[in-house]
Simulated scan of single mutants.
Amino acid sequence: MKHAKKATSRTRAVTGGAIVAALALGGFGAYSASATGENTAAAPAAEAAEADAKNTTRSTHLTIEAATKAAQATLDAAEKENQRVSVAVVDRNGNTVVTLRGDGAGPQSYESAEKKAYTAVSWNAPTSVLAGRLAQAPNLKDIPGTLFLAGGAPVTAKGAPIAGIGVAGAPSGDLDEKFARAGVAALGK
């Protein structure tokens, strides 16, 4: 039994020493933090700054209403010719605003329409024209998110691209692009 008491005394001594050491180190850390002048309280909030007008730009975007009108006009043009297509309208930055998948449109047409719209707005040109440029610059097709097949048309305002309309699913890219142009034309009405 005496042996057990010695172990307990030793354990107490070691534990007590560890506690004293921890308190000493903690006190030293607090002292050194205040000695450097650091405020351990919450830092003051960053002040908001207004950007100077010369450092900003404005861009024109289609409203959701206009994008929907263009997509519906595109789909209507395709349906008049009994074509089953998907239509995508993207904004100037290539973000999809509206996508309509017509009844019976193939599963590949949805993504293809988005890529054609993105490609048309990126280069501000119909994708049929851009497809012809692949002969001189075959690496264009390697740019992510693009599709260099006829069926995409840019939408412009004051000569600058503001959106793209892409169509996929008709038996030819020429038909896809014809329907995309119908959507662009609907925005002028």
Rank of each mutant, 00 (worst) to 15 (best):
G166Q: 00
T96S: 03
A150V: 03
V20Q: 00
V85P: 14
A88Q: 05
G16M: 07
A163S: 07
N82G: 05
A180V: 10
V20D: 00
S122L: 11
V90F: 12
W123H: 03
V14A: 03
S122N: 06
D76P: 02
K80L: 15
Y31F: 08
F148W: 08
G104S: 11
L75I: 12
G183Q: 00
K158F: 09
L75F: 12
S128A: 15
T96N: 08
G173F: 13
N82K: 07
N139W: 14
N124D: 05
D174K: 12
A186Q: 10
T96M: 13
A22R: 02
K5A: 12
F28E: 00
T40V: 05
E111R: 06
L62P: 03
A153L: 02
K54S: 15
L149D: 02
F28S: 01
D103E: 15
K141S: 15
A131Y: 11
L140A: 01
A113F: 06
N124T: 00
A160I: 04
G151L: 15
G151H: 14
A33R: 02
T57Q: 03
V155C: 10
A35S: 00
V14W: 00
A7M: 13
A185K: 12
H61T: 13
Q108L: 13
V121C: 02
N124F: 01
G164A: 04
L75N: 10
G26Q: 04
V155N: 05
A131M: 05
F148A: 00
G26R: 01
A21G: 12
K141L: 08
A160H: 03
A67Y: 06
L75W: 12
D52E: 02
D142K: 02
P44H: 10
I19K: 10
R92E: 12
A186F: 14
K189V: 08
S172H: 10
G169N: 04
A53F: 13
T57N: 00
S122I: 01
A150S: 07
T74I: 05
A33H: 00
Q72N: 10
F148Q: 04
K5G: 05
A131D: 10
G102V: 08
T99C: 04
